[in-house]
Each structure stands twice: as structure tokens, then as C-alpha cells.
């Protein structure tokens, strides 16, 4: 059963990821990415990461993708711009990288599987997933958490500055 669920989510993720790259219209690409985000969230639920599944839907599908769709509709593109001239080279590089990943996984299968089954302890289910993550976030990872807030502030200021009129306009 678990294997079947995994293969359902995995196949949908791979197919929609292919659509994101292959489709011509940016709106369709963004919608394919939306479907992919939902299935990645489903995969997270099967891995007992319920908090991240909800965050994935809220942040990615709710905020990031809406921003993309806004920009696509704001720019109102008319010209067809599809694949680059370096199509073959890009495809070849992607295949090489993927083959390398598969090779490494196959080679490390024995050691990886052995180590994992030896130390595989199920996550403690006495407390909720959200509670455990929150405790970890505010104790061990307190400093990275603060740095993340700083990154968000910098991104916000940067976005406002970049879209301000009169900064990147053509000098005439």
C-alpha cells in the first residue's frame, strides 16, 4: 500500500515537473507547478512531516505561485519564446547528471541501506510534529531562525528598491 502511494505521488511529480519545463505558456507551467507542489505535500504527509506539508501548500502554492501568476499576467507577453539554441547540450548535461546520481545511489545502496536500517528509529509520536519542530526551531536553531528573518527583510527591501521607478530605466 505504501509503495503504491509513493509511486502514485512520484509519477505525478515527475510528469508535472516535465510539463513545467516543456509547456509553452508560462501560465500553464505555473499551474503544472501548482499540481506538483500539492503532490510533494502529499509525499511529506506519507513521511510523517505534516507541518511541512501544510507549510508547503501555504507558502509555495499560496504565496510564491500567486506571485508568479501576477508577474506573468502583468507582463502580458505576446512573443513566443520557447527553447534555447543550446537545447541539445542542456538535455545532454541533464542526462549526465541524472545518470551520475543513479550510479551513486546504486553504488551506495548497500552501505546506505545497512546504516539506515540499523539506526532507523521511528519519530516519537507522543508529541505532535509541529510541537517538536517548534521546540527544535526555538532552541537548537534559534540563531539560523533569526538569520532567516533577516534574509526575508533584505529580500523585501530589495524587491521594493528594484521595482522602484527610475533605477534601471534606459538612459536616453
Amino acid at each position: 500500500m505504501e509503495t503504491f502511494v509513493f509511486f502514485y505521488f512520484a509519477s505525478i511529480i515527475v510528469v508535472t515537473a516535465g510539463f513545467v519545463v516543456a509547456l509553452k505558456n508560462p501560465v500553464y507551467s505555473a499551474l503544472a507547478l501548482l499540481v506538483m507542489f500539492f503532490h510533494v505535500a502529499g509525499l511529506f504527509v506519507t513521511l510523517h512531516a505534516e507541518f511541512l506539508a501544510i507549510i508547503q501548500i501555504l507558502v509555495y502554492a499560496g504565496a510564491i505561485l500567486v506571485l508568479y501568476l501576477f508577474v506573468v499576467m502583468l507582463l502580458n507577453l505576446k512573443r513566443e519564446e520557447h527553447f534555447h539554441g543550446q537545447f541539445i547540450v542542456g538535455l545532454f548535461l541533464g542526462c549526465v547528471l541524472f545518470a551520475e546520481a543513479v550510479l551513486l545511489v546504486l553504488k551506495g545502496e548497500t552501505t546506505l541501506g545497512g546504516n539506515l536500517s540499523a539506526s532507523a528509529a521511528p519519530l516519537e509520536l507522543t508529541r505532535g510534529n509541529t510541537e517538536s519542530i517548534g521546540e527544535l526551531l526555538y532552541s537548537t536553531y534559534l540563531f539560523p531562525f533569526e538569520v532567516a528573518s533577516l534574509i526575508l527583510l533584505v529580500a523585501m527591501v530589495g524587491a521594493v528598491i528594484l521595482t522602484k521607478k527610475g533605477i534601471l530605466e534606459a538612459k536616453s
Binding site: 515527475v14 519545463v21 507551467s29 534555447h84 547540450v89 542526462c95 541524472f98
Partner: peptide, 21 residues
């Protein structure tokens, strides 16, 4: 699975012309 998705993303960065994609 993540290797496949990462490769698709890499190919997309290399072959598409549209900056949004």
C-alpha cells in the same frame, strides 16, 4: 525521485528562454 526532479529543473534552466520559466 529527487534526482529526477533536480535534473528536470537543471535542464529547464539550461534550455528555456523565458526568464519566468
Amino acid at each position: 525521485l529527487s534526482g529526477i526532479v533536480f535534473s528536470i529543473g537543471l535542464v529547464g534552466v539550461l534550455i528555456r528562454r523565458n526568464i519566468i520559466i
